[in-house]
Simulated assay, not measured.
Amino acid sequence: MIDLAKVDYQVILLPPSGGKINITDLIDAWTHEEMEDQISAKVTLSLKNVKREDGWMHQHVFLDKRLVLEATDGNGWREIFRGSVKAWKTDSENHTVHVVAYDPNYNITISKEHYYFKGGKTAAASIKEIASEQGIPIGVIDGPNKPLTKKLYKNSIANTMMERLKESERKGSGKYIIRSTKGKLSCLKEGNNSVIYELDDWTTESSSDERSIEKLITKVKIYGNSKGDARPKVEAVKTGKTEFGTTQEILYKSDFDNMKAANEAAAEILKEDGKPEINRPLIHPDIPWIRKGDKVRVNSGTINTMCIVKSVSRDMHSKKMMLQLKE
């Protein structure tokens, strides 16, 4: 049980001097977000550029130095974001400092590296290897633990991790997310949170229930190995529900250890993408402990089911959160 009226926040700067500066009372606007398909959380702040005994406020905002966001529901302060300042600027017109901070996963979203993983290596093992190589502290790695085929990656490091998760999902491992908790990279199965919050009509400000078939996949073809410029042979065709027409994805046998694995991947695609997409945006008084990937119970409007949080964006000034939900 949470008392929504007691929710509050504070922001602590940790400058190179080694001290701590609580800047909460100087903040005019602040947001915190964990977005879908992003592995790094973001905090944005606008604060008054006041003059202190030890200098102007902007002189205490340092690039790549720590910033911590904490929240309370009346039962003590708990950290909900730990990151570093990646950009700041002053505004002379209204005497403010604008700050953008990201958690430690940010650097691997803009860094690129060449990776080759042998057949049989799991996504969990790959993620641990990458994080260790990049000097990122490792938190909880729940999986996925399905053996994958050998593959070469030449992309951003974050995209390599995400691709390994997608390949595991196609093999039936379920959906996993990467996020940072107290400065450590974790890989968790969606909906594994032990505390499940209920969002109902009494507290929900607004919600909507949306359906779409714009990204629908109803057929998957599996191609064999090509010879020269010839079109490869179709090894198998998997068809799902075609009540909304036929839209097709293709796979290649060479990306899998055997045809059984390729067929399993095709079945997983039809399971995930072979039905209308459901989107459920919801605005609610903020519960600071809800994170992307968490399971929540929703009883609002036409939504009456368990949902997974695809993304969360909270405005600490209004003390509201916007959730994007899926089943």
Results as ranks from 00 to 15, higher is better:
77 W>G: 10
109 T>A: 04
231 R>V: 12
5 A>K: 14
314 R>F: 06
308 I>N: 01
115 Y>G: 10
67 L>E: 03
239 T>D: 14
74 G>Q: 06
62 F>N: 03
130 I>W: 09
65 K>H: 12
227 K>R: 13
291 R>L: 14
90 T>W: 02
161 M>Q: 09
30 W>K: 11
31 T>H: 08
210 E>Q: 09
78 R>F: 09
110 I>S: 10
127 I>N: 03
139 G>N: 11
229 D>H: 01
127 I>V: 09
304 N>P: 02
94 N>G: 04
248 Q>G: 01
49 N>L: 04
233 K>L: 11
112 K>C: 11
38 Q>S: 15
109 T>I: 01
143 G>W: 01
123 A>M: 01
66 R>H: 09
51 K>C: 07
139 G>K: 09
132 S>P: 04
24 T>W: 10
249 E>A: 10
223 Y>C: 02
147 P>M: 13
177 I>N: 00
10 Q>C: 14
189 K>D: 04
187 C>G: 07
317 H>I: 15
142 D>I: 00
48 K>C: 13
275 K>H: 08
83 G>A: 00
182 K>C: 07
120 G>Y: 11
55 G>L: 00
114 H>A: 13
207 S>I: 03
168 S>F: 00
164 R>F: 02
115 Y>I: 10
261 A>Q: 15
201 D>H: 14
274 G>L: 05
50 V>N: 06
230 A>T: 13
272 E>H: 01
68 V>M: 05
143 G>M: 00
143 G>Q: 01
207 S>H: 08
18 G>R: 03
167 E>P: 06
236 A>T: 13
296 V>D: 02
227 K>S: 15
83 G>Q: 03
97 V>A: 01
86 K>R: 02
214 E>V: 06
273 D>A: 08
220 V>P: 08
88 W>F: 12
144 P>S: 01
140 V>N: 15
201 D>S: 15
43 V>E: 06
157 I>D: 11
324 Q>P: 04
135 G>H: 09
226 S>R: 11
148 L>T: 06
54 D>R: 02
25 D>G: 07
159 N>E: 15
303 I>F: 00
81 F>K: 08
289 W>F: 15
144 P>F: 04
51 K>Y: 12
239 T>E: 15
326 K>I: 02
157 I>C: 12
92 S>T: 05
114 H>Y: 15
159 N>M: 14
108 I>W: 07
159 N>D: 15
325 L>C: 06
14 L>G: 08
323 L>R: 04
37 D>F: 10
260 K>C: 05
304 N>E: 11
67 L>C: 02
170 R>C: 05
196 I>T: 05
244 F>H: 10
229 D>M: 10
35 M>P: 00
39 I>T: 10
261 A>R: 12
45 L>T: 07
235 E>G: 00
120 G>P: 08
28 D>P: 01
252 Y>R: 13
327 E>P: 00
305 T>E: 12
